[in-house]
Amino acid sequence: MRFMFIVKSSHATSPTPELMEAMHKLADREIKAGRMLDNGGLMPLATGAQVRITDGKLSVVDGPFVEAKEIIGGYAIFELLGKDEALASAKEFMQLHRDLMPGWEGTCELRAFASRMAS
């Protein structure tokens, strides 16, 4: 089963060097173990834009943005046996934050990919 992990936080500060290193180590282990297929960090909200449809109208919001509660900071794609393994993996990832960046708050949301089938 393929999963996407989406990490969200309201903390704008970048990770501590210790957390950075630990996350790199974990990602390296997950890639070498054949579970992580892809990952990436995202630039701050201000560097992006939003294309929206509201009330049937299409509009482009190119900043400044009202600070959202939680902002997506990065993602990873995993191929795992199932949700249990995804949970175990996400907990390990979040525990690193707890240990190495006290005070940090955020969410790692894990979502299964919709399976596609030939009709």
């Binding site: 173990a33 579970r35 046996l81 199932g82 249990d84 393994e85 949970l87 175990a88 993996s89 390990e92």
Partner: peptide
């Protein structure tokens, strides 16, 4: 048990 086996799969090679 399912949660433990999931952790197991990740940790076992090490």
């Amino acid at each position: 048990h399912r949660a433990i086996l999931a952790v197991w799969r990740i940790e076992q090679p090490r």
